[in-house]
Design a protein around this nucleic acid. Structure first.
Lengths: 218, 218, 218, 218
DNA sequence: TATGAATGAGTCTTCATTCAT
DNA sequence: GATGAATGAAGACTCATTCAT
């Protein structure tokens, strides 16, 4: 009795829906959700397979390893953030651009905590026992460069390359701090979230140097 | 070969060294290091015991549970931070106090990345599969309150309770963002670390220029 | 030597034999035997798996927990007893019914000492450190009710509900005492087992001599 | 620094009370209680030591092994039963003696369920993997012989040796059944316990052959 | 004598992964 | 391409026991 015959007899029903690439996407989506809900370490391949509705070994048709799946999820998450940033970078200019970018960043993190958590806050595998060369942030340099670009647009040409990086990194860190804490410690007695975000974004740029009204200074 | 013979040969003897409280401290130190290097989930009690040089069950003479060990490590880490902050809060005033506090915070995080990581960045147990109610940040409220106190001292009495919290939380988030990113992604192409920190701390408070209040500025 | 090579040499292959439900039954059978031979507490899942010829984790494909396995074994044991009793309750009447039932009970216990031991004599889990609320006897109430039914048939309608229970419980206890002692202490210098059983069952009902009241009989 | 000096300095307080034999008794008493409350397998030497107020290793000064402790506890329990039976065997004669003995047996079991459980119902160690040559029941033959003696007294000389054993063993089994079930399954919907015991004991002997009422016969 | 400290062997259970079909 | 079944390795934790003091 050959394999196909056996299958016909036993009637082991396959899951006909969305094989191939769609199935892969489905897996990634469920994994993203589960990872950020319960943490990468807590979620087992069995759970992922169960959520997708396939068998555990079937995962291995799409990803050679759990680690590979995790990394792909991270890359996707970063991709989503980059996309969001790219979408807004042309929508404003001057100080407004900074506010817009900051808002986009925060909104992304809070509206997709799953993705953000996976991208920035997750303990990734550390193969050799040291700190990891985390593929996620490495891929995230692209997102950083977008942010840096926005800084250039906002600050005009008067800054050195290093000054630009300095500002961009400081701002990035500031934004990340807010988003990560809001996500990670939702039970902390935060002030009104909306006001906090607004104030935080406002503080990203120093107030316009010249007193714009009334008495002018330099 | 009976057991005694085997013991003589392999030399599996008791380890009389450092009993009692010192042993406990030793365990905590190794656990702190391992947790921050590899993550709480990845480090097993076996590994901790191995690092300390004792057997796995011996851990349980000092901590009833891995979770208890983790929590103690967290408490210590937070305690160290609070101590550091308390130490500096009286050493400066005005804007300098803010810089001093910020510097203390960042220094703590960078000089004790293990502790910081454990205290702020670690995935703690999630009881119901939801977000964790972790003892760490809850205990960390004490540290926050110290920071808030500093804000009050710096800003004087002109701010409402809410405004104080707003500023304090935004600053805290900003500091956390910098420290956590520097710790978590050391391989990112950061600008000069010292300048970045300085600039970041400087940006915590708006520049002292003109008092914008009362007299309106746009 | 890599893993594959090692596997070829040691021959650690899969064990395709008897999958699915048969495997489950096989596990139950071995567990029943081992539990009754050595006691539930003494038998480890490793031992059960070893007896069945599968790996320890494979057990968990069939039973989520050792406790679940124990409970299934108990349920089966009780089910077998109930079945046996139900089979004979219609086969006799009058005093004969009592003897038949008693005989069925004793035969069950002695011919399936494993099951009987598991059902009646085993220390089950004690949730609060107190006496156990074990699922076994609770499920065994069904068997008791069958016995009670037989008592009703035998004694006719002249007894109050309470008198019926009184008699049924006393008889049940008596039967249990014999079976459990014969099983538990086989090395005791018992008299001829067959005669003992017969006499014991005979003693369950008072001799039919004269009906002490009303109409005198033989 | 010698040992005694060290002890004086560290002040490791010994427990001065009842050393030697009293201490041994204390251990046995606590063990009996714990074993019957939680089961032999569930109670650890640590728990016993803790209950007694001594250190775990100190147990090994009195009993070479947990098993030895268990066996001693069993022997004591049987001793207590034998004592009780011996105490009542001279207090009655004829049918009353049987009732008195039965009552003593049941009372012993119910008033000292700890001892009874340990003596009769406990899973003892089965060293070779088979059914145990349980030291408890073996020691309990003495108690059986007392019961047998009572049967002789009650039934007069008209019975063969074998008939005596037959009756004695059947009765013993009957009593054991009641006691063990009452102890083991206290939550079963038993009828009034007192009536049940009385009826059960009454049924141990066949009713006096002659109709006792009204017309006397001998 | 008694103990604090320690331990090897064992408990149940879960995991990522692989095999044969 | 998919799966049911299985597994080695590891997880946290407990136990009876022993050693040096």
């Amino acid at each position: 009795m050959d394999m196909d015959t056996a299958r016909l007899i036993t009637g082991t029903g396959r899951k006909p829906k969305g094989m191939g690439p769609e199935r892969r996407e489905e897996i990634l989506a469920h994994a993203l959700r589960l990872f950020s809900e319960h943490g990468v370490h807590t979620v087992s391949t069995r759970q992922i397979a169960g959520a997708v509705g396939i068998s555990q070994p079937s995962l291995y048709a799409y990803f050679p390893t759990k680690q590979a799946l995790v990394e792909e999820v991270c890359k996707r998450a970063f991709g989503a953030l980059t996309e969001r940033m790219r979408a807004v970078i042309g929508q404003a200019s001057g100080r407004d651009l900074m506010a817009t970018m900051g808002r986009a960043y925060v909104d992304f993190g809070l509206s997709q905590p799953d993705a953000y958590r996976v991208a920035f806050m997750i303990e990734v595998a550390r193969p050799d026992g040291g700190l990891a060369q985390d593929p996620a942030l490495m891929a995230g340099i692209e997102a950083y460069l977008l942010h840096r670009e926005a800084v250039v647009k906002v600050m005009g040409g008067g800054l050195s390359e290093e000054a630009i990086d300095l500002l961009a990194q400081s701002q990035w860190a500031s934004l990340h701090g807010l988003v990560s804490l809001l996500i990670a410690r939702p039970t902390f007695p935060w002030v009104d979230r909306e006001r906090l975000i607004e104030a935080h974004i406002d503080s990203l740029l120093p107030p316009p140097t010249a007193k714009p009204s009334r008495v002018s200074g330099t």
